[in-house]
């Protein structure tokens, strides 16, 4: 008798289900990525048509770093373009938007998302200097932090404590802006 003959039928059914689920997750991730591509290649990405009489106010408040060492680390999602919800073996990296807006921001995001979709290398926290990309990043299930005009390196301590981030890189160039070192 082979192994498969020894196994109860439910085992095979569950195995099939698991494989089907995995295939479905991959298909869904591919669908999400295609949808994301379309959005980023649109004529006016991130455009908000708002009829408002006030002057737009940029993000000013930066959350201070907490001294409470007992707080648990929070997870960093992979985004819906990835078949796995979490990939805890990948490092957590903050990606600063370099103050880019509109189609420049979209092009830089496209480059990064393409790499991340093909061969994911990190769990990403997007550091946004404006609110422009917030609906987009939220829709695709990414973590983001609004930092306004703050120097990105100054928020790394908080990102490390909150998410376990180890470095901050530039969205445009990929260069390392700051590296976390234990105090």
């Amino acid at each position: 008798m082979t192994d498969s003959e020894n196994r109860p039928p439910i085992y095979d059914a569950l195995r099939h289900l698991e494989l089907d689920n995995a295939a479905l997750r991959l298909k869904l991730a591919r669908h999400e990525f295609r949808q994301m591509e379309r959005e980023l290649k649109a004529e006016h990405p991130f455009k908000l048509d708002v009829h408002a009489t006030g002057e737009p106010v940029p993000a000013k408040i930066v959350i201070p770093e907490t001294k409470d060492v007992m707080l648990p680390r929070l997870p960093v999602p992979m985004g819906s373009i990835h078949a796995e919800d979490t990939a805890t073996d990948l490092p957590v990296i903050g990606v600063h938007d370099d103050g880019l807006t509109g189609s420049n921001l979209a092009a830089a995001l496209m480059g990064l998302m393409n790499t991340q979709y093909q061969s994911p290398f990190a769990r990403l926290i997007f550091l946004c200097s404006s609110f422009e990309a917030v609906p987009f990043l939220g829709r695709y299930g990414f973590a983001f932090e609004q930092i306004g005009a703050a120097e990105p390196a100054t928020v790394l301590g908080r990102l490390n404590r909150r998410y376990g981030a180890t470095q901050i890189r530039s969205l445009g160039t990929g260069a390392v802006i700051a590296e976390f070192r234990e105090p």
Binding site: A52, G54, V57, A59, I61, I63, S130, Q146
Partner: peptide, 12 residues
């Protein structure tokens, strides 16, 4: 972003 466009500070 809409809140900001209406002239209010916001923490996202």
């Amino acid at each position: 972003g809409i809140i900001s466009q209406f002239g209010f500070e916001a923490v996202s």
